[in-house]
Design a protein around this nucleic acid. Structure first.
Lengths: 134, 134
DNA sequence: TTGTACTGTAATAAAAATTATTACATATAA
DNA sequence: TTATATGTAATAATTTTTATTACAGTACAA
């Protein structure tokens, strides 16, 4: 598992608590990762309509919608991996009665697990998450 | 995220549906990964008391307990990463009011998410999972 | 109309994590 | 006492993640 969700959530938290537009450089300084990586994640958040950007001088990024209307589920959705609990990169042996079926059953399980996960994350708005900060 | 959970679940499924002991070589053939990796995962499952092994000729592995008494939560527990939804490897800027607090809030969130996850996985026994196979 | 400060993105390099391989010690059944 | 297992360490290969460099495009403002 990689660091995309924490970074996306950090970005959204910064934007939520800021009064004005923020630059990717500033956010990279808070998160402490490379600014190109931040812009890549921002580009993804923009595609998913959670963030707006303004190019040019004095440009930057803001939330596209009120934080009370954005849930953590939506943020997770933008970085969600194909397989919640991990994906092996092998192809199980099709000659084995278990091997040939297991991927389908794991996929089915993951659908359920994802549902439970999204339900929990859907319970918390970005506003509520940020309200916990001092 | 890595492939440890699918591999552990594949191992447990094979052991559950087998009538006799299975060798790590055989399981590696079904999963289609290196047998040393399988033995490493088995070693971990043994530590967690889900699997028993017998060394020497005609040795191999079996479930340590009836499959009706093992839940998918217990299997996941053996491979669980520190951070369910991913861990960034940076140290957020302690001079930033958001940066200095975010890790604690992410940790708190992960505790809750993990609870939801374990609840869902605790609902399914290994026996029930394997019963879905033809 | 030109310099400055941004976003957007591609290409590449560096670093880290995962998986495979090799090697061998140890156990046990036949 | 030989064959076939487990157990585990060390190392190599591969893949993934993150950082860096470079530069095109946009918009403000002097």
């Amino acid at each position: 598992m990689n660091g995309r969700f924490p970074i996306a959530l950090h970005i959204m938290t910064l934007l939520c608590s800021a009064e004005r537009m923020l630059s990717s450089e500033y956010m990279a300084g808070s998160i402490n990762v490379n600014s190109v990586l931040v812009r890549k994640e921002l580009s993804n958040l923009i595609k998913n309509k959670l963030v707006s950007s303004q190019e040019g001088k004095n440009g930057g990024y803001t939330l596209a919608r009120p934080a009370a209307q954005i849930t953590l589920a939506e943020i997770y959705e933008t970085v969600k991996p194909e397989a919640v609990l991990g994906q092996a990169k092998n192809q199980p042996n099709p000659a084995c009665p278990i091997g040939k079926q297991i991927n389908q059953h794991i996929t089915d399980l993951y659908v359920d697990v994802d549902k439970a996960l999204m339900q929990r994350l859907g319970n918390t708005t970005l506003l509520a998450f940020v309200a916990k900060f001092n």
